[in-house]
Design a protein around this nucleic acid. Structure first.
Length: 553
RNA sequence: GCGCCAUUAGCUCAGCGGAUAGAGCGUCCGGCUACGAACCGGGAGGUCGCAGGUUCGAAUCCUGCAUGGCGCACCA
């Protein structure tokens, strides 16, 4: 345009991207294809003019016009070699971007009812939510992880009755066990502990007193258990939010739920009909709910939805700019009403709900049917014990959330050495081994990070990193920034897992083709720096997906 | 009946408007007297569910259909 060869009054949306085929260069743009019509030139002619303008930039070694009018750019070796220093200076901050600009986001996930063990689906949400939170933090958001504890409502009562029934049985009474009660063996276990602690002193107590006591005792125990299992896979929450607090009256006698309904009333979204209180979801058609929803039933009880509205209002009152919920696909029918409710409360579009498709557990190729009520289930805890936290987390994360997951227990165990997670971890362990050997301390207990600092203190001439395998690895190291951006934008941790595998592959190829501990001290020094940069990026990526980066394995 | 998600290599899945559709597993052939072979290289294998449409360009967007999963309570 400056040279007067192109006349454009507006510029269409164009893309600058990394081509799939590396022979097309490091970057490719379709600007000429997009602008051809407006510029009244053929795409190729336009591309030639633009390409001429780009050629000569210091970091660009080649520009070419290809295909229908793509412009392909190739970075200079020097630009790539600089990545080593950038990575080593940034350390664990490499790949950080600022999409969030410091805004606060809350990620709420798992939120399993505290009335029994978690199922394997909860494992998926745990891996997903924890990683998503880490990625968002790396992308510049201020993140909090939250677990919503459903400690109010009828399932708690059923839970209490179930434990009480088992307690009475253990104390020698005959009990008619209702069909809707929980039948899992863990219920009996809890009852057994109460017997051990307190004997039969509750046998003669009134049922209501007994159940009230058991509810609290059993609930506290289960909650601690959930925390322990989640902690065991490296998943820790900042906040455990109790549903009961929403129902508790404040100093003005009103509960959070009362106040949320009042706020909606003021906004004009509440009406009474058939003796019940309704939320006029259909007054907000853009959120897609197809009918209005009851908040207070004709019998005076609140619905779960009423509490959930109060809960979300509470989240926004706590100052979050954005709220993300991770739900199983069996709750997707709930999405529209929840978004409509948030909009009605004055927070339109600030709630994102990630729907994870369900996990089907297979054993020897056969579906394991599970039911919390009947107690036939393989718990998440058992699965963790079987396959290990690293493999479980990686397995849960590796595919996109809208893809159902078949988890074959036998396969996961049998193929554990074939699991891609080991491929990535092996690359890291291999790097650590090279660094130790390079420093002449193969048996040291020193952390590899310290070894690396000592080993590379003398600096290096990075222009020696010119082998195609080295340049490929450098390109891959540089890519993390975009991957983080992509993954944060799409709320898609699986993109990090795939990147980790790509990076590990690039490293293994480099290792095969380029001898690091070379006799030439200059080449050796340069390659050691590249190896260390690879270690840093690999460890960072593994950290983002919540998998350990072992120095030996 | 309505809604959400899916359908891509033998299997499990990426890719989600661009240039010859990719990876792992499986299969066939090759590579350790150098830093970890839990590794690397190569081959075979695909009308991207079907039919229309939009576009300079469609696995990718739109419509319809088929198949599968999950939902459609004054349950939680």
């Amino acid at each position: 345009m400056e040279s007067g060869q192109i006349a454009l009054t507006e510029v269409p949306e164009v893309e600058l991207e990394r081509p799939r085929d590396p022979s097309h260069g490091d970057w490719s743009t379709n600007v000429a294809l997009k602008s051809a019509k407006l510029a009244e030139q053929s795409p190729r002619a336009l591309a030639e003019i633009i390409a001429e303008g780009i050629a000569g930039h210091a970091d660009v070694s080649a520009v070419e016009v290809a295909g229908p009018g793509f412009i392909n750019l190739r970075l200079s070796d020097a630009a790539l070699q600089r990545v080593v220093g950038q990575v080593r200076e940034a350390g664990g901050d490499w790949g950080r971007v600022d999409l969030g600009r410091g805004r606060r986001v809350q990620v709420e996930f798992v939120s399993a009812n505290p009335v029994g063990p978690m199922h394997v689906g909860h494992g998926r949400w745990a891996a997903l939510g924890d990683s998503m939170a880490a990625i968002l933090a790396h992308a510049g958001w201020s993140v909090e992880r939250e677990f919503y504890v459903n400690d109010a409502g009828v399932q708690m009562d059923i839970f209490a009755k179930s434990v009480a029934a088992r307690y009475l049985e253990l104390s020698g009474r005959t009990v008619e066990f209702a069909a809707e009660w929980y039948q899992g063996a863990y219920i009996t276990e809890i009852a057994r502990e109460i017997v051990a602690d307190e004997g039969d002193r509750w046998v003669a107590a009134p049922a209501s007193e007994r159940e009230a006591y058991f509810r609290e005792k059993a609930y506290a125990q289960v909650l601690e258990h959930l925390k322990g299992v989640l902690h065991g896979m490296g998943c820790d929450f900042d906040v455990w939010f109790s549903e009961r607090t929403l129902h508790a009256p404040g100093s003005d006698g009103l509960s959070d739920v009362d106040r949320a309904i009042a706020k909606l009333t003021e906004a004009g979204y509440i009406y009474e009909a058939d003796g019940a209180t309704w939320f006029a979801s259909t007054k907000l058609p853009e959120w897609g709910d197809d009918k209005d929803r009851v908040l207070r039933k004709a019998d005076g009880d609140l619905t779960y939805f009423a509490a959930d509205i109060a809960y979300h209002e509470d989240k926004f009152e706590r100052g979050f700019d954005r709220v993300i919920n991770i739900w199983g696909a069996d709750h997707h029918g709930y999405v529209a009403r929840m978004k409509a409710a948030c909009a009605a409360l004055g927070h339109p579009g600030q709630l994102d709900i990630v729907i994870g498709q369900l996990v089907t557990l297979l054993r020897n190729g056969e579906v394991v049917r599970m039911s919390k009520r009947t107690g036939e289930m393989v718990t998440f805890e058992e699965l963790l014990d079987d396959v290990g936290a690293d493999a479980a987390r990686y397995f849960f994360l590796r595919r996109s959330t809208d893809q159902p997951l078949d988890f074959d227990i036998g396969l996961a165990k049998e193929q554990s050495s074939e699991n891609p997670v080991y491929y990535v971890q092996y690359a890291h362990a291999r790097i650590c081994s090279i660094l130790r050997k390079g420093a002449g301390t193969p048996e040291t207990d020193e952390s590899v990070a310290d070894t690396a600092v000592r080993l590379t203190a003398g600096g290096a001439d990075l222009s020696l990193l010119a082998d195609p395998a080295e340049l490929t690895l450098l390109r891959k190291l540089a890519e993390l920034t975009e991957v983080v951006e992509d993954a944060a934008d799409a709320l898609a941790p699986h993109k990090l897992a795939h990147y980790a595998e790509d990076l590990a592959a690039s490293f293994h190829q480099f290792y095969t083709l380029c001898h690091v501990l070379d006799d030439d001290p200059a080449l050796r020094a340069a390659r050691l720096q590249l190896v260390d940069a690879s270690r840093i990026v690999l460890a960072t990526v593994l950290g983002l997906i919540g998998v350990s980066a072992p120095e030996r394995m």
